[in-house]
Nucleic acid binder design. Structure first.
Length: 253
DNA sequence: CGAACGACCTGTTCGC
DNA sequence: TGCGAACAGGTCGTTC
């Protein structure tokens, strides 16, 4: 569920609440997470983000948290039964994750992609994209190419860039490519400033909703008029994922 | 190389 | 109302 803006929101909130504090007790209610008990204990020196992955530096080791589809963190009272809770000097944080896809682990097998905010990201990725025939949407969502973009933001970025999600990656002209990345940065920045997108379950560390939902142009707007031209938004499957786009604004070249 | 599919999971919504 | 199918923000492994 959580993509770059949601994880970035959590990262910033965790930096404010957790860095410099000690995690004293860990309660892994879900036995699948019991190995995290000892790994999580200690002083939190830093919280960082790598794509959609949160990275905690605790004492001298690094710990990764992949939130999966439904994972989120909540400070204080949980609104659903948590899979794991951690008590630190300053409060309790709960991992809420109904679908149980979230994973806690050591820093291994992090995706190799490049952060879309990195300088020269567009230029660097263009070199790799030149000979890739896969649809541009699947390229954008591949964490070994671009970090942090999932289904919602892929759809929204491509709509704003007026690019058809099925367009072969290699068909993009250099200027389209630069525009695409400029728009990606803008969309992601805007989403971060609104604390991400709450569709149903997502909440930030304090339980607040993400307001980018109000800016969604195509995601889950099947059969509704395009805000730009009035054509009905279409939903098709790409890599087995729902893919929303305007068939008029995002024509296949 | 990459597409297609199932697996991992639970919860919600939709159609009949 | 009830029931099953479809679907949901992510990733991984297998097969073709």
């Amino acid at each position: 569920m959580p993509e770059l803006p949601e994880v970035e929101t959590l990262k910033r909130e965790l930096q404010a609440e957790l860095v410099g504090k000690k995690i004293k007790e860990v309660f892994p209610f879900d036995p699948k997470l019991k190995e995290a008990r000892e790994l999580l204990k200690g002083e939190v020196k830093a919280v960082e983000r790598h794509g959609k992955v949160l990275i905690f530096q605790i004492d001298d080791h690094l710990l990764t948290l992949w939130l999966g589809m439904s994972g989120r963190l909540k400070l204080g009272d949980p609104d659903l039964p948590p899979r794991l809770s951690l008590k630190f000097t300053g409060g309790t944080i709960h991992l809420i994750d109904p679908r149980r896809f979230a994973k806690i682990g050591l820093q291994n097998g992090l995706p190799k992609g490049i952060d879309p905010f990195q300088r020269e990201a567009a230029q660097f990725l263009f070199q790799r994209a030149k000979c890739i025939k896969r649809p541009i949407k699947s390229f954008l969502m591949d964490q070994d190419y671009v970090l942090g973009i999932g289904n919602i933001y892929a759809c929204e970025i491509l709509f704003r860039a007026k690019i058809n999600p099925f367009l072969p990656t290699c068909n993009l002209e250099p200027e389209e490519w630069n525009l695409l990345f400029k728009i990606a940065q803008k969309v992601l920045e805007e989403a971060i400033s609104l604390r991400g997108t709450t569709f149903s379950q997502w909440r930030d560390l304090y339980g607040q909703e993400g307001l980018f939902r109000e800016r969604l142009m195509v995601y889950q707007r099947e059969e509704k008029p395009c805000f730009r031209c009035g054509t009905l938004i279409r939903r098709e499957l790409l890599q087995g994922r729902g893919t929303w786009f305007c068939p008029n604004c995002q024509k296949e070249d």
